[in-house]
Design a protein around this nucleic acid. Structure first.
Length: 289
DNA sequence: TAGAAATGTTTAG
DNA sequence: TAAACCTTTCTAT
């Protein structure tokens, strides 16, 4: 379930679990066997995300060059993480990483204090990604050059995205999905952002004033940061929540996947239409043209 | 149990 | 514009 918040959360967690340590890597499925062999035994220097792309920078134990792992989950890709001994690999397991608990063992955990616990073993399994590959620094630059500002990265300039928006006759709903306009935004944040700013999805980019764009950016920064913290997308304002307590996924949003149901604000039926191959949802009354 | 749909991107036509 | 990639989850039968 990957929009940008998912990847930034994964990067954060993987940095915490594996960063600074040696990893063991394997590809039980075999499709990434060569790449896994090159990472195996290397030290993870840094895990980080740009938009929906995840990178691991490794230093090899032999000190010869480094490796950069690039992962894009696509629509189906998923990481599963756990502590202790990893389960027997089943199905199409592209990449398994475990920390090297023995090699990471602190020197203080020696025989003299043999009741001191070993560092816990942790593992993470990757299935179904669109991309799982090793890249050179130059290849990474090519990927990053295709990305617009990422609301989850400090120093991102929203006006770089606005430059493309304000020159375009393309519907704003299509522009918001363009990773050159905004890196990390996907179908859920797109629909919800348009609703929160009462913007008709088929309004052209040129019709979006700069001030509105900056408001939308600020909103995205807040929403997506909350998404990193919670691991889910919640866009509904407290006043519009259907009830108190933990919200189901459908209750956490205004319009996404709610076609035919009443708008939470005005009661009008939520509409849906396919736009550039993706399902779009909006309230025809709150988001009038 | 089968089938459809899904928070995405690339490539082919 | 459509298909391909590839896995999980939810719904319908």
């Amino acid at each position: 379930m990957p929009e940008g918040h998912t990847l930034h959360r994964l990067a954060r967690d993987q940095q915490r679990l594996f960063g600074g340590g040696t990893v063991r890597a394997s590809s039980p499925q075999g499709r990434f066997a060569d790449g896994a062999a090159r990472i195996d035994g290397a030290t993870l220097i840094k895990a980080e995300a740009y938009g929906k792309h995840l990178f691991h920078r490794y230093d090899r134990a032999d000190g010869i060059g480094g490796e950069i792992l690039h992962v894009h989950l696509g629509l189906y890709g998923k990481f599963t993480t756990g502590a202790g001994e990893p389960p027997e690999p089943r199905g199409a397991l592209r990449l398994r990483l475990t920390n090297d608990a023995e090699m990471n063992d602190s020197p203080t955990n020696d025989a003299a204090t043999n009741d001191a616990p070993m560092k816990d073993r942790v593992w993470t399994d990757l299935r179904g990604p669109t991309a799982c590959e090793l890249m050179s620094p130059a290849e990474v630059e090519v990927v990053l050059a295709r990305l617009g500002p990422d609301p989850l990265r400090r120093g991102s300039d929203p006006l770089l995205g606005f430059q493309r928006v304000t020159r375009s006759r393309t519907p704003i709903a299509a522009l918001l999905m363009d990773q050159q306009v905004l890196a990390g935004v996907g179908n859920v944040y797109r629909a919800e952002l348009l609703f929160r700013h009462r913007l008709h999805p088929f309004a052209t980019g040129r019709g979006v004033p700069q001030e509105l764009w900056l408001d939308m950016w600020a909103d995205l920064v807040e929403l997506m940061r909350a998404g990193v913290r919670s691991g889910r997308i919640v866009t509904i304002r407290p006043d519009d929540r259907p009830r108190r307590g933990r919200l189901t996924r459908a209750e956490s949003v205004y319009v996404y996947r709610r076609a035919g149901e009443p708008c939470r604000v005005c009661g009008t039926e939520i509409r849906t239409e396919v736009l550039v191959g993706r399902n779009l949802f909006w309230c025809p009354s709150c988001q009038a043209p």
